[in-house]
Design a protein around this nucleic acid. Sequence first.
DNA 1: TATTGTTATACTCTATAACTATA
DNA 2: TATAGTTATAGAGTATAACAATA
Lengths: 157, 157
Amino acid sequence: MRRKQAEPAEFEGQADPALQGPLQQYVGYALRRAQLAVFQDVIATLADVDLRPAQFSVLILVDANPGIVQSHASASLGIQKANFVPLLTELERRGLIDRVAVDGRTNGLFLTRKGRATLKRANALHTVHHARVDAIIGTENREQLIEICLKLAELAR
Amino acid sequence: MRRKQAEPAEFEGQADPALQGPLQQYVGYALRRAQLAVFQDVIATLADVDLRPAQFSVLILVDANPGIVQSHASASLGIQKANFVPLLTELERRGLIDRVAVDGRTNGLFLTRKGRATLKRANALHTVHHARVDAIIGTENREQLIEICLKLAELAR
DNA sequence: TATTGTTATACTCTATAACTATA
DNA sequence: TATAGTTATAGAGTATAACAATA
């Protein structure tokens, strides 16, 4: 399992002088560093329920959209349908979701009772992470960050 | 080579109804989607000079800090020293950087003439990407986004 | 004929452990 | 004894292509 990212350079509480260059002004670089840090915190937070971010996102999506079909779910999450298969297979193996045949080629997704219980625990844990994020940047900044990120995601269309 | 990410779900210009759930409020999820989209755009933009984002960041860092030693450079970029080795080896193989022994166990990093020329081309290409980002979110939002991301990166410490 | 789910495969990124040569 | 660079290896994540079964 992945545990931590590379230690950031330490300079007695100062910002790393090597990073005062143009890199600090690049959106992609800032996003990468922030995303890695946040994911690291989420991974550590959800370790108790043994859920990775991608697995957590599937449970959330299926909980909010019972019966959603695989192809729709994977497209919504921006995951290739081919990569979605082993993800679901593992969640099904653990008894957290069910694949229910809608017709001969389509599966609807549902949380099992155990899946709902696990998600409930995961949500409680995630609240702690969420509070940690808000403590660092504030609620207002969080909401603005998300708004900006959603606009940037349009670049992928 | 990686070319594109999964197609986002399309709903005749509407937002994907399956994503109106709690996922939209999570910083980690928003950051991941935005980072993937921005990186995809950077990768496509820099394809002409055959540089991946990580390679580009190394050239920028070494250009701004000639002679920086490997361990410092990798820590500054948040890359494990073990993973930094093949990255540098490839850049050296392509004649873009030089590893110069400082003492028996330490390498200082320098751009070659070709490395500087390639970086110059890459920067010119990157300007186009940068303009695309600003066109979507605006300069002010970009600056605020970066500020917030840097604060979030503190989570990793 | 197009779509859904699947298998196979490969590349990138990130991580750890252990080694060597040197300071 | 600690550090810099390296090698080996493994696990995620993401990408493509091709296939069978079904609509």
